[in-house]
C-alpha cells in the first residue's frame, strides 16, 4: 500500500493549506498577543490546526469508514486478498487514533494553563505577560 502525498486533487490540497493556515494563526496569537488568555487561546488554535493536518493525511477521495461492518463483508471468507480489496476504499484509521489522543492531551494542557492564568492574575492583578517577569537573568 503505497501512500502518496503530493499528487492529490485540489480538495486534498485545501485540507493541508487550511491546517497550515490555522497553525500560523495560532502561532501568531501565542507569540504576539500580550494578554495571557489570548496566548492560551492561540495555543489551543495551534492544537486544532495540527489535529486537522494529522487527519487530512489519512484522507482518501470518497473513502468509507474503516470498519468491516457485516453489510460490507457479506460473509466473504477472511482471506488476505479479500481484506486488502475491501480496505482499498477505506480511510486510513491510524491518524484518527493519533488525533484522538492529541485532542485529549491538548485539552489537558489548556486546562492546566487556564488554572495557572487564574493564579497569576490573583497575584499580579494583570494579564499582560510583559509585567510577569520577576524570574529573570
Amino acid at each position: 500500500m503505497e501512500f502518496k502525498l503530493f499528487d492529490l486533487s485540489i480538495v486534498e490540497y485545501a485540507f493541508f493549506v487550511t491546517s497550515v493556515l490555522i497553525i500560523l494563526i495560532g502561532l501568531y496569537a501565542a507569540l504576539v498577543k500580550k494578554t495571557l488568555i489570548k496566548i492560551v487561546i492561540g495555543l489551543s488554535i495551534l492544537d486544532a490546526g495540527i489535529n486537522l493536518l494529522l487527519i487530512s493525511i489519512g484522507y482518501l477521495k470518497a473513502g468509507t469508514a474503516p470498519i468491516f461492518s457485516p453489510a460490507l463483508v457479506k460473509n466473504m471468507p477472511l482471506t488476505l486478498e479479500n481484506i486488502k480489496k475491501l480496505s482499498e476504499g477505506m480511510v486510513d484509521p491510524v491518524p484518527q487514533a493519533l488525533v484522538l489522543t492529541a485532542i485529549v492531551i491538548g485539552f489537558g494542557v489548556t486546562a492546566v494553563a487556564l488554572s495557572l492564568v487564574i493564579r497569576l492574575y490573583r497575584h499580579h492583578h494583570t494579564l499582560n505577560i510583559d509585567e510577569i517577569k520577576n524570574l529573570k537573568w
Binding site: A30, D47, L135
Partner: peptide, 16 residues
C-alpha cells in the same frame, strides 16, 4: 507567585 509564572512559561514552551 513565582512558581505559577515559572510553570506557565514551561507550559508555553512545552506546548510548542
Amino acid at each position: 507567585r513565582d512558581s505559577a509564572e515559572a510553570s506557565f512559561k514551561y507550559l508555553m514552551i512545552g506546548s510548542l
